[in-house]
Design a protein around this nucleic acid. Structure first.
Lengths: 343, 343
DNA sequence: TGTTAGCACTCCAAGCAGGAGAGTGCTAAC
DNA sequence: GTTAGCACTCTCCTGCTTGGAGTGCTAACA
């Protein structure tokens, strides 16, 4: 069961060659391309052993061999070195983010995009914003006689705004008074947990003004719910087109139809949320429809709480090493951003 | 050149049959499927005439015939009746928008999505926001010792915000003073046209404080440019997968690579901006890469100014009638939204 | 004169055979 | 333990054949 060094080396060559070419690898090819000092025949013997051990598979007798799920597992567990991103790649990521992060959704969306771009596979980012935002203060900015702008700042320093209707003739002073009352009352509360009763308690005038009350409540509710929900961001679905595994349109459609269902994606991502970096290879995956794919997933946390999960999904023949290092780097990057947001 | 009724009828049948089946239509099929009271031989004669006139083409001798670009043009110009959307479809669109319009970008994005969904083709929406926004006022909201939130309100009632760095120890009073000075100076100006010099003129203290000055200027510049730009929203690129014309992955890739280039899309959309509804069939289109496609495009205006353009792109074999009625309906819907936003 | 039946013709698609190429497994020799 | 040699297998490509679908033409019919 334990592989000697030569077998390991050959297995690694087969895996890496197959990852880059997507063609079954034959003994002759190995002898020619890699200087092992071994004849094809010897390599053949070793390959035969590796097949018996379950590391290699033959699509048909006279094709070369391809790595089995088990081989990838072995490769991932004990053959890839940590690896860091090239400076070039790092610079690319840095620049990418620098241009794009204006609000929290953009951070996730950008992460999904750059992740897929760098790994040449489909990426998914689950933003787990539930319960993450606490009321800090709100202000009303003037707009016109009938409407005002409600600006809500949460403790993570993110600002939301929403146009609300106000009673005609309401003055800015009244609005300012109202905002400080509301702020006093709601400060520190989780946005998602703000109820109509809490708002009604602010002061009796507000509760009686149906229009104002409901437009404020609705605004808070909208802001709260739009941000407290979990959201999945998909990136690079068109990368599928470049993978030989997806030469045929029907396979692409099958996979896309799964990716379209947000609920399924959430389930998939939640399943791997507990471990730090999780690699699922082929049928190790329990979800139907992606069992011939592999997935590399990383969860990021802030103060122990799960903030989000990112994953790369693609054919089992994927560049695990590269993907892991890209994710590592993104992980750091995001942590920094969130830490700063917190301050 | 003028077609008699029978020829017209046969041409229409061929076009509509081909649109729905994507298979060349033969004389026998027509005789069997549609009750014309004519034998295949007669129909054949008519088809032969239609081919001579340039309305039909044969992929090869023993296939049926398919409509030429000219046939589609004729069909579009004189055979499709205006047509209204089914109530079902209308309700679908209404519900779709009701759930989704929270900010201006979402309106465009949602339009692209529903448009592609209902027409089963790729959609493009060009949001032409250039020059549309004028400075109304700005406010600074407190955040922490080193940072504040810049809230900018434009005359269309849209609020943007941005976190800026401020000198340590700057008080809210100072910020308020600053904001009113800036507002006085910049009110009414087009966001895109605000220069560093204008801001420097506000008052000398500001010009001297490099940090504050540059962070405010950068914020204004970001907000201005991010919104004054024209933006293209794409919808339903994956609809391509369902079109038999795109069975082969390489064709999809070719088209997608064009759709990825925002500049090209803008050119394409601008080209049809002047007419109300424009239909471009096959090689009528001047842009390389989409010359075997058709495009239906509609431009929407507000007070004479072009606000945006939407288009559906797909194989020449598309349901022109349906597409036009969907667009009509969306057009009305958007007009209403924008009119209201204006008020 | 318009319509239709009949028939030869064309072309594609599918199925099959044969050869080339790639790769394997086995055996015997080093 | 390693390697050369060789027979074997399987896919892929090519060329060939055949059946089906559709056409165009001609002659007969109303």
């Amino acid at each position: 069961m334990v592989l000697n060094e030569r077998k390991k080396r050959i297995l690694q060559i087969i895996i890496e060659d197959y990852i880059s070419t997507a063609e079954p690898v034959g003994s002759r090819t190995i002898a020619r391309k890699y200087d092992l000092g071994l004849s094809p025949a010897t390599i053949r013997n070793e390959m035969s052993d590796l097949e018996l051990l379950g590391f290699l598979e033959q699509p048909h007798t006279s094709a070369g061999r391809i790595p089995s799920a088990r081989a990838y597992r072995f490769y991932v567990d004990s053959m890839i070195e940590p690896g860091t991103l090239t400076e070039n790649d790092q610079a690319l990521i840095d620049a990418w983010y620098r241009e794009r992060i204006r609000n929290i959704d953009e951070i996730f969306q950008s992460t999904a995009k750059i992740l897929s771009r760098m790994t040449k596979n489909v990426s998914m980012v689950l933003a787990n914003k539930q319960g993450s935002r606490f009321f800090r203060y709100l202000k009303f900015l003037p707009l016109d006689g009938k409407r005002a702008i409600l600006c809500l700042v949460t403790d993570d320093g993110v600002v939301d705004n929403c146009v609300i209707e106000i009673p005609i003739g309401m003055t800015q002073e009244e609005l300012d008074y109202l905002s400080s009352r509301i702020t006093n009352k709601l400060q520190g509360f989780n946005l998602a947990g703000i109820t109509g009763d809490m708002l009604r308690d602010v002061y009796s005038d507000l509760a009686q003004d149906k229009l104002l009350f409901s437009s404020i409540f609705e605004a808070l509710h909208n802001i709260g719910s739009s941000n407290s929900e979990q959201k999945v961001f998909l990136g690079g679905t068109r990368q599928l087109l470049n993978q030989p595994e997806f030469r045929n349109v029907d396979r692409i459609k099958d996979l896309l139809s799964i990716l379209e269902e947000e609920k399924v994606l959430k389930d998939i991502l939640h399943a791997g949320e507990n471990s730090g970096v999780k690699i699922t290879i082929g049928s190790e995956n329990k979800f139907t429809g992606i069992q011939d794919c592999s997935m590399v997933q990383a969860t990021y946390r802030l103060n122990g709480r799960v903030v989000g999960t990112m994953a790369v999904l693609g054919p089992t023949r994927m560049e695990y090493g590269k993907i892991i290092s890209v994710m590592d780097y993104l992980h750091q990057y995001l942590s920094n951003i969130f830490e700063e947001g917190r301050k």
